[in-house]
Design a protein around this nucleic acid. Structure first.
Lengths: 229, 229
DNA sequence: CGCGAGCTTGACGTTGTTCAACTAGAGTGG
DNA sequence: CCACTCTAGTTGAACAACGTCAAGCTCGCG
């Protein structure tokens, strides 16, 4: 599985500043790459593990999961393909800060970190583009941080429902691949609190929800809740 | 004030990967720089304002302040000189994500952003080092985020007191240049809650506190509170 | 048919915010 | 030099938000 990984997926490096890479550089990356399939709930990169690889998500949805000493989980974010993963982990030289876990079947290309690091050191445009990507992720984390600090849990839950519809499923109607417990870990509240909020919204026709099937009926009201709570 | 700014402070660019810059490049930065003094509570870079400059803090202490629509403030972090500021703001092309405000008299060198951006695009080592700096800040923000999500307010307050002693004042005994309200905005709680916690710790001889004078008497106990709350 | 995991609901206690009253110190004008 | 005011800091009580606990439900699977 070590050949033609990139040329078969010519799009993937575009996010990683493909235009700024030479053919030789692309070939080097290709030779240091492997393409793998992960099943639901399998760990792609493990928190605390050596950050030997960065990952490119070709297909599927993953969660960025942080586990503390007491075994409690916080989902930092959820992202869908196509996306570069592990960029955030990349430069904490030795260890991954959080785990990246498949929440659906995922196709992933793993690239050896040292190869990428060498390229970053050599190719300014590649490095600059990566810096921009990192900054963008950084910005999102700060906004997430701010939302957690200011908002009531109801506002947080509104935030993540809007986020999932807009940025993960790209539709107001979706089959959720997270459990209630995971949703709660994303919002940073208890699963009971999350469930009560969702079922209240269901009664108030802000969302329609039946098991894993979700539909955001009144996005404006949800955004209002996000602002005011 | 447009000459010899850098050579007079030869240390300042070392954090910004000075070894990776040529003499010409340093001269370019120097010509695009200005050195200013800010009084306590003056804004160095304003949230929402155009990010036309990045800043290097030569002397003093600043807070990174985020203000929401309702006028409530959250202090993202507090840092002391010497430090590069605005790196986080740098690449959100148009607007600063948060304000940087002096909480003591500060000496600051402001550099025009486009000059730095051009260098980043041209010089891979400079770009890579900046990427590492950004990653490091990113990491700290994530850990701060996690602490806010998991911990009770008492744990948060322990965190910021430890942080201030270790990373800002570099001493267990210090004259705090933040008000109680600002401390609360840093911990993400009400000022009443913060005051009650500090005065309880004072009685329990975990800290000694008289007005602005603080001393951390029992750092181990504080770290224990940080872990368990 | 029964078991277990995920989900749901309500009661209850804890944590933390808000509100209101009060104190101490610093600055101001008569 | 003394009121006066203004702000920061402090305290306690009432109240709301939220998590925990305990019980019951549902659905898929052996």
């Amino acid at each position: 599985m070590k050949t033609n990984i990139l040329t078969n997926n010519s799009s993937w490096l575009s996010e990683l500043a493909l235009p700024n890479l030479t053919k030789d550089e692309i070939k080097t990356i290709e030779q240091a790459s492997v393409r793998l399939t992960f099943k639901k709930s399998e760990t792609i990169l493990k928190q605390g593990g050596q950050s030997t690889h960065i990952a490119y998500l070709v297909q599927g949805i993953v969660k960025f999961n942080f586990e503390n000493e007491l075994g409690r989980n916080l989902i930092l974010t959820v992202v869908s393909a196509p996306k570069i993963l592990g960029g955030a982990n990349l430069l904490y030289q030795h260890n991954n800060l959080f785990s990246i876990i498949a929440i659906e079947i995922c196709e992933v290309i793993l690239v050896e970190s040292p190869v990428i690091v060498d390229l970053l050191k050599q190719n300014a445009h590649f490095s600059f583009t990566t810096l921009q990507l990192t900054s963008e992720m950084y910005k999102k984390t700060i906004l997430n941080f701010v939302s957690l600090a200011f908002k009531h849990k109801e506002g947080r839950i509104a935030d993540i429902m809007i986020y999932l519809a807009e940025n993960v499923y790209h539709n107001n109607k979706f089959q959720l691949s997270l459990t209630r417990k995971e949703l709660a870990e994303f919002a940073g509240c208890s699963s009971e609190n999350l469930i009560m909020t969702l079922s209240r919204w269901n009664k108030e026709h802000i969302i329609h929800n039946n098991g894993k099937a979700f539909e955001i009926v009144d996005p404006d009201k949800l955004k209002l809740i996000s602002r005011n709570c």
